[in-house]
Each structure stands twice: as structure tokens, then as C-alpha cells.
Design a binder for these strands. Structure first.
Lengths: 161, 161
DNA sequence: CCGCTTGTGTTAGGGACACTAACGATGTAT
DNA sequence: ATACATCGTTAGTGTCCCTAACACAAGCGG
């Protein structure tokens, strides 16, 4: 089955020394791997990464305008259009004009959408389990914490607790 | 200067709970951040990420064919062409046909190339320092180790020591 | 020597993702 | 009323990662 060996960070004596110090490279290659793992699993059930993100936001915060959704999911409002089209086609959301504001649409998750979300949640749980398989409970928490500190810092965090 | 706040993994109460458990999302967003940090710094000196990678491989392993370079840098041979063109234009490498094998080119780093590599190395050292600024010495090592284990695992590692 | 297969460099292109620009329609403020 | 801001939408940019096809050269089996 010889897999994505291309994305292995370290190939031992074949890997230039200087590259091993580049966190950017390591995290970049790992990102592609994890993205692919999640993407493949979701594609197997006919879903896309953003489907899960949008459904999760709707389930947790209730009906929302597309602008609000974009804000909560970091999906650009321009890209959101296609995602919502697909979700509506599947019957997982309803998109109706906001009677209170003619500019907005109100996006609502349907019962089928809740079920879909549960399904995708299961799929992604498996993916996460697979990704972090080699790590123990505390190590997973450590990895999350370390990455989040780097992420916060690069996002321009003024050292918030 | 309000920066790339879009790429912050956690926006507190505005972030759906389910998304916080997705390592794929966290590592993906952080990858974009670090890639951008490195890319910006390199662009400021007229360089590209792959320039550094290729020069490093040449400096550490000596002259090589493009196929060998592709193997060592995980840059696809198709993409390598443009990188080498740019490096040759800058006078940082020489590209000559291999007298022993009419199919191959022999890529050699020049003295200017060595200097260029040293420059890019300095630039990237600063970037890495900036990226990992919030982490202590041991934490940086931990982050590297954890990510490498995930990376190795996803690359299809058969539990190699 | 002659095909056959393999390796090499090159060109072209696809697909995913993050991101920007512009625009018509609609609200809001002055 | 006039100016400005917001919303959904369409279109397009740039960057990675990756595949396909091809001409050419090398090696190998007959």
C-alpha cells in the first residue's frame, strides 16, 4: 500500500540537516497529511470539511446569517455560498430570507442536518483517533497546547491568558 | 497593524466547541501562519522557500542531478525546473549536462550560492525564533518530537525507532 | 544491432485552499 | 435626501501539492 511517503519530514541520511530545524516545514507537511486524512474520510461519505464546520456552528449557535456563519467558521463569505448550496441541496440546512432584514438570509439546520452532523462527527472522531494514534492522552493534550500557543502568538495575541 | 486574526484557532465563545477538538484544523491553520511568516521573510530578500531547500541540499550533499535533488527535497521534479531556472538566473547554481549520462544535468552550487544560503539561513533562523518565541527550549523540542511522531505515523511508518 | 523498458528533464494542467475585488441590493445615519 | 455600511454573490488571484504526457538518452535481452 506504500503511502504518502513523500510527506515524511525526516528521511534519515537523505534529508538535509538544515531542513530538520524548520518548524514551518514540519508543521506544513503534517498539515497536508492530516488535511488529507480528514478530507479522504469525509469524501468517502460525500462530505467536505466545510460541511462539518458549518453544521457544527449552526447546531451550537442556532440559526444565523451567512455573515455570522462566516465569522464563526473563518470560511470566507464568498466561499460559503457554494458550501451552503451543497448543504441545501442535501436538505441539511434551510436558507430563507430574513423578514427583519432584506439583505440577510437566515440559515437553519434541519433534522436531517443534525443527523448528518452526528455522522460527520463520528467520522472525524475516527480520523482524529487515527491521526493521534501514536500519542498518549497527556501527549495529545500537550501537542494541542503547544500548537495553540504558537497559533495564538502568530495570530497577534497580546499574551492573553 | 491588526494582523491575520482570521487564522486564530480559538476565538473563545465565538468558536464552535466541536471545532476545538480537530487537530487537523489547528495544525492546518498554524501551518498557514508559519508558511506565511517564512514566505514573507524570504520574499523580502527576493527568495522563495524552495530556494533555501535546494541550496541546502546542494551544500550538504554536493552536486546532484535534478532527480536526486527532487528525491532529497520532496520538491516534484516538475516544479524543480522553475526553481533551478531562478537559482541559475541569480548565479547561485550552475546547471551543466552530465558527461557521463546524457539524460542528466549536474547541478552545482556556486560560491555566490553558498553566500546566498548563509543569508537565507539567517533569515529563517529569525523566522523560527519568531514563530517559537512563546515556547521555552524544552517546549520547542517537545513540539518537534510530538509533531514528528504524528508525521512519521501518517507517512506510513511501521513503528521505526 | 534492434527493440524494450526504464530513468531524466520538461511542459502543461488539475484541484484544493486562502484570499481579494467588485457589485447590486438593502439597511442605517445624518 | 444623501451618504455610508452591510449582505450575499460572482469572479478571479496566488500558492501548494500533485499527475500526465513526452522527447530523449541509457541499459538490457534477444
Amino acid at each position: 500500500m506504500e503511502s504518502g511517503d513523500e510527506l515524511r519530514f525526516d528521511h534519515g541520511d537523505r534529508t538535509p540537516e538544515r531542513l530538520r530545524g524548520q518548524l514551518s516545514r514540519l508543521v506544513g507537511m503534517t498539515a497536508v497529511q492530516t488535511r488529507r486524512a480528514a478530507g479522504d474520510a469525509l469524501r468517502a461519505v460525500g462530505a467536505h470539511k466545510d460541511d462539518f464546520v458549518v453544521l457544527a456552528a449552526l447546531a451550537e449557535f442556532g440559526p444565523a446569517s451567512q455573515a455570522a456563519l462566516s465569522d464563526r467558521t473563518r470560511i470566507y463569505k464568498s466561499d460559503l455560498v457554494a458550501v451552503l448550496n451543497a448543504l441545501a441541496r442535501g436538505g441539511w440546512i434551510r436558507r430563507a430570507p430574513d423578514p427583519a432584514d432584506g439583505r440577510r438570509n437566515v440559515i437553519t439546520i434541519t433534522d436531517d442536518g443534525e443527523r448528518r452532523l452526528a455522522e460527520l462527527d463520528r467520522v472525524l472522531d475516527d480520523v482524529n483517533e487515527h491521526i493521534m494514534a501514536p500519542l498518549g492522552r497527556d501527549e495529545r493534550a500537550q501537542l494541542f497546547a503547544l500548537l495553540r500557543r504558537v497559533n495564538d502568538h502568530l495570530a497577534g495575541a497580546p499574551e492573553r491568558a
